[in-house]
């Protein structure tokens, strides 16, 4: 008879998914709760910089697609909270952690969206980087996480295409629009590279995360892949990436690129980014303002003892 740890290790080795009720090391459970809830928070906070421009979207088609995209992000947050809850923590608890500043979310969303072109840049670069991070997660060892990621990845590709199309239209427009496009790329490029996290040698959690097959590729591997792809794509836009050090390296078969400003990375991570405060305030406000709504709905449900005792095929109010 195998011990629980051995069964767990074998599952990991054989790419058999770990499900919520399976035995798992405490640290594995904690790591997953941290990673999944922070991923969920990122989706929700991420709604804000883009949601900012819904009322100013410059055409009906752009308006509709932007609402749909931001709505998708809410949905992604929801899938991830849902997966996190299978590990014995409630959404409410993770949100309290977020509001108390104890949980992190992707730092990229602490940057402001200053022009319409930013919406394009976010779609192309930020969602592009997110996709690169997320595709390997579809094979994460924890079942609910992998399944949530599969759902998310399916929906994500339109997000990136929408962003790129916005930039493409601008790049073919007036002088003012072209400048708007280049300016947005200049501001979002480096923060997008930072989305892949610290360099491998400065990343303490990575080793364990890869051993447990939560993480499949290293930060630097994914970042390099992203750079290689974007250098090609930016040519279609007739724009520049704001890094004079980008150069094809015949030996490695990749593009070399400049050094990231790690000081900025850690400052924003610490909470000193341009919009850290506003983002959290907005989320806290929405949550607090919603309390009376949630209470009312609970009170009503309790009054009516709302339950469907009838067979699954129909829903009839308990009257």
């Amino acid at each position: 008879m195998l011990g629980e740890q051995e069964i767990f290790d074998r599952k990991i080795e054989q790419e058999i998914r770990i499900e919520p009720k399976d035995w798992m090391p405490n640290d594995y459970r904690k790591m997953l709760i941290r990673q999944m809830s922070q991923h969920a928070h990122s989706e929700i906070v991420g709604m804000l910089p883009e949601g900012n421009w819904i009322t100013r979207a410059p055409s009906l088609r752009r308006k509709a697609t932007l609402i749909a995209k931001v709505q998708d992000e809410a949905g992604h947050g929801l899938y991830l909270y849902s997966a996190t809850e299978t590990l014995g923590i409630t959404r409410e608890e993770t949100i309290d952690q977020l509001h108390a500043g104890k949980a992190k979310y992707s730092s990229i969303f602490n940057y402001p969206t200053l022009t319409w072109a930013d919406i394009g840049a976010i779609g192309w670069l930020v969602d592009g980087a997110a996709i690169m991070n997320q595709v390997p997660l579809c094979r994460a060892s924890f079942g609910p996480y992998a399944r949530a990621m599969i759902r998310i990845c399916k929906e994500e590709s339109f997000h990136q295409r929408q962003g790129f199309e916005i930039l493409l239209t601008l790049s073919r427009g007036s002088e003012a629009q072209k400048q708007m496009c280049q300016d947005a790329i200049n501001r979002w490029w480096w923060p997008s590279l930072m989305m892949f996290g610290p360099n491998d040698d400065a990343s303490p959690n990575s080793r364990l995360s890869m051993q447990w097959k939560i993480k499949r590729f290293t930060n630097d591997e994914l970042r390099q892949k992203f750079v290689d792809v974007c250098v090609e794509q930016v040519k279609t836009l007739n724009m520049q990436l704001p890094d004079p050090k980008i150069k094809w390296n015949e030996e490695t078969g990749h593009y070399d690129f400049g050094e990231i400003n790690w000081e900025e990375f850690y400052e924003v991570l610490k909470g000193n980014g341009p919009c850290n405060k506003e983002r959290l305030e907005a989320r806290k406000k929405a949550h607090e303002a919603g309390a009376w709504v949630r209470e009312a709905a609970s009170a009503y449900a309790a009054k009516k003892n709302y339950s469907f005792n009838s067979p699954v095929h129909g829903s009839q109010p308990a009257k």
């Binding site: 709604m47 804000l48 809410a74 949905g75 909270y81 929405a286 309390a291 949630r294």
Partner: peptide
């Protein structure tokens, strides 16, 4: 209301 709803599900 997008991003400011009383609960995520109602935002959607």
């Amino acid at each position: 209301w997008t991003g400011h709803g009383p609960i995520l599900e109602q935002d959607i």
